[in-house]
Design a protein around this nucleic acid. Structure first.
Lengths: 260, 260
DNA sequence: GCGCGTGTTTGACCCGTGTCAAGGCGACCC
DNA sequence: GGGTCGCCTTGACACGGGTCAAACACGCGC
């Protein structure tokens, strides 16, 4: 711990936008200052590869801003995004020598990085961190399985509707009270059509057609290619085929955030 | 610990078929005897519901024999299997009040069950158990993501071929040395066509057609509806679109067992 | 033996979505 | 300004695989 530094008021963590919600929050002050010492902030341009598929994996960490995609490409070039990481999600894979999936920047990103071996030592040294990690991974597992359900037995239209509702929910939750009025019906898609297609297991053309059809039916209104207003929530939920995604419903099981 | 009992030689664990490979193996003798005290063996007929979707989840445990399916059904009846559990996999979800997925017996099964709260106390009391659990869940996450890749961007024929290769691999690994010769090309499908369809995100009709076509092309030979011989491994691997599934390849990353 | 139920296979048809090709729109550079 | 490059949209067409219907195979009870 750096003498004279105060994590709460001075260190790089002090200005961190995700400090209220990130993984590190669960640690006590002493551990947090150790984490601060280990961490370094890095930025990547959209499209940059943070960790390549099947390669050594020197770092893990948190998304501070922007979006990462977790993906795999098969030999003939087809690729599937198996997870989107938004702030304050964690990226990387602890306790494995190689990353089975590539991690790339879907937008410009800011990451809070830890050397993986040091981070693993930290988990080992502090039970409560490892426990929190277990809970996190369990939620990611639930989320991945929810996504399997969508990929395996829902139509593209249902997947798009679900995706928009989940994004909306996640955006709304991150808003301050004052913004709720506006946020109530607003959705921002933080990624390209290409990434949407790779995430939803379809093609850009089909994504585009599906969205345009939803707009023509006045279920959504397009502000631009990445910004929408949900005009008819009821029909939107019906289209998704998942009543539990209703905007006014009870808090979603964390798995349904789906973006992990 | 029961006085006079010896876990190694007398207790119910002594005859357990999965004791060399199950989760509990990682514990030391003292913890194992505590686990033995907490556990109870239960059997269920094929089709029985072990844990219903969205309901309270009183137990967790290991599959001793048979196959469990982890699944979710959406309102209109479509359902997706998001995981198959074979011995010695664990079932149930720790540290969550409700199960987001149903767990049902795909065949007659024998389970080694623990009351969930007691099992969680055990994890909390014994670091090495919780650590092992974290590793297990991380592998399941990798497996779920591998499956997302298959569901999202491979054809049904590719999925069927991958599934058979993975089953074969898993079966072969569980064989004793002496059986290897025969096991080299043998596959048993432990579940019905209906479950295969729900797992691979398709229909029984398409599953059936795909398998018959593979047999007609002499890639596999059908002994009966659930037993096959892989005749042309090369083409089988090519059909799967995943070179890493080759039978003679290096050990699969655990994620590829896919059945967790 | 027979009838019945369940699981699997096969055929015919057609719809959703992938493929291929072209065009629009905005951003950036020379 | 014009040209080029990504990204998104739109259209025409083809095909994989879903749906519906029927036949078959096997096990079980009577």
């Amino acid at each position: 711990m750096t003498i004279g530094s105060n994590v709460e008021s001075q260190g790089k963590c002090a200005q961190c936008g995700i400090r209220q919600s990130a993984f590190c929050t669960s640690a006590d002050a002493h551990v947090r200052s150790e984490m601060e010492r280990l961490s370094h902030i890095r930025t990547f341009k959209a499209g940059a590869t943070i960790l390549a598929e099947g390669e050594d994996m020197p770092i893990v960490g948190n998304v501070v801003s922007g979006v990462l995609r977790v993906q795999k490409t098969i030999s003939d070039g087809r690729q599937q995004i198996v997870g989107l990481l938004l702030p304050p999600d964690m990226f990387g894979r602890v306790f494995a020598p190689l990353s089975p999936f590539a991690i790339e920047a879907a937008t410009d990103v800011t990451l809070c990085c830890f050397p993986r071996p040091a981070f693993e030592k930290l988990l080992t040294a502090h039970r409560e961190l490892e426990h929190r990690m277990l809970l996190t991974v369990l939620e990611e597992l639930d989320a991945a399985r929810e996504w399997m359900l969508m990929l395996g037995c829902q139509t593209v239209a249902e997947r798009v509707a679900s995706f928009l509702l989940i994004l909306h929910r996640r955006f709304k939750d991150s808003c301050r009270e004052a913004d709720i009025g506006w946020a109530r019906m607003y959705v921002e898609i933080p990624i390209s059509r290409r990434d949407m297609a790779a995430y939803l297991g379809t093609t850009v053309e089909t994504i585009s057609r599906t969205i345009q059809t939803m707009a023509r039916k006045n279920v959504i209104r397009m502000l631009d290619t990445r910004h929408f207003e949900i005009v008819d929530e009821k029909r939107m939920v019906k289209m998704s085929g998942r009543e539990e995604l209703a905007i006014s419903a009870d808090p979603l099981p964390s798995a349904m955030y789906g973006a992990h």
